[in-house]
Design a binder for these strands. Sequence first.
DNA 1: TGTACATCAGTGAACGCGCGTTCACTGATGTAC
DNA 2: TGTACATCAGTGAACGCGCGTTCACTGATGTAC
Lengths: 193, 193
Amino acid sequence: MEAALSLLERKSFTSVSLREVTREAGVVPTAFYRHFSDMDELGLALVEESFGSLRAMLREARSDPERFQHAIRGSVEILVRYVHENRTHFLFMVRERFGGSAGIRHAIRSEIRLFSSELATDLSRFPYLREWNTDDLQTFAGLIVNTMISTIEGILEVPEGTPSSEAEVIRTAERQLLMIALGAPAYQAASTP
Amino acid sequence: MEAALSLLERKSFTSVSLREVTREAGVVPTAFYRHFSDMDELGLALVEESFGSLRAMLREARSDPERFQHAIRGSVEILVRYVHENRTHFLFMVRERFGGSAGIRHAIRSEIRLFSSELATDLSRFPYLREWNTDDLQTFAGLIVNTMISTIEGILEVPEGTPSSEAEVIRTAERQLLMIALGAPAYQAASTP
DNA sequence: TGTACATCAGTGAACGCGCGTTCACTGATGTAC
DNA sequence: TGTACATCAGTGAACGCGCGTTCACTGATGTAC
């Protein structure tokens, strides 16, 4: 699994061959079958491992409710740190979300959906979101998740070691999340006249 | 190019071989070289063709300013129609945006950036956005483009012939765009106290 | 504590296959005079 | 209007290569008695 992830910096998982993985791992091709029956099984294991990183991130964001609730900046900071610390995991998720095999695509998609639902539950504890119906909360959470995903994509795309472009990505994310957060009360006011 | 696009329903461009393309086109493998020097050149030609569809969409949205300016529903309708009419073009863009070769990824990314800038220019003509600075407008346009992209992704993901799920995607898009639109004045009010 | 056996990750040779690319070719269509 | 030549898309044989997968194997580690 480590070998596969380390190959992702250069290419997408779908275009990595079984032999490339074993070569990277310093092992003979047939040894692969001691661990997985094919590349798809490896891919699904990587989905699980990768979303483990994401869940850990969410757990941390939750453990500091003050920061989570009040400072967009704090949340973006946690996001950025996790993307750096688990770069290949996030690269894998972003690359295979649409490019992967059907099984891997579905696995990633359902993890994101789960993640979005959990965020909706968290959001329902916000004072000014308390009275929203589930549907509106889901939509709102989806909007935030979209912005988070494109921020992750932005961070991964920025050439490594160009802090100025990355700072730009971060600044954009913070302002977009602020726009969304400010839109929420206006939306609620408009839909319950 | 038609043959390549027709293969995209099943797999991503990166994992399509030169021989598969010629087989689909009903032609001998070597005939490929009469048109492109390699698969990457084909891919770049497809980027151009695909974004042609997208530009046509923008042109139509612009030609009916009333609808463009006032009804989010109208804009989403145009978007949905274009995705259906050019399904393989959009599939190609979504799949290769992260999964493709470096050259193709860059080409797609810069087209999206261009698209976002043009939207920012259009937005500056809105009465209540007239006084925004370029930076805020770009950020705002980015947010809208993100939402459009994830709506496109949603439409492409929905199994064909399940109108109820598609309607759900459309409804979510409309409400998210509304949240964003309502957030704009609040954002401006907050940043110019 | 020692012996016998099972489990397990990795080995190395071999297979048939689809791949990208080369080459010299064919025959239809377009262009110059 | 007729002839000579150029351009062009497509052909078909051939190449060397990396691929996924099979098979019988080795040798280290763990477990039962």
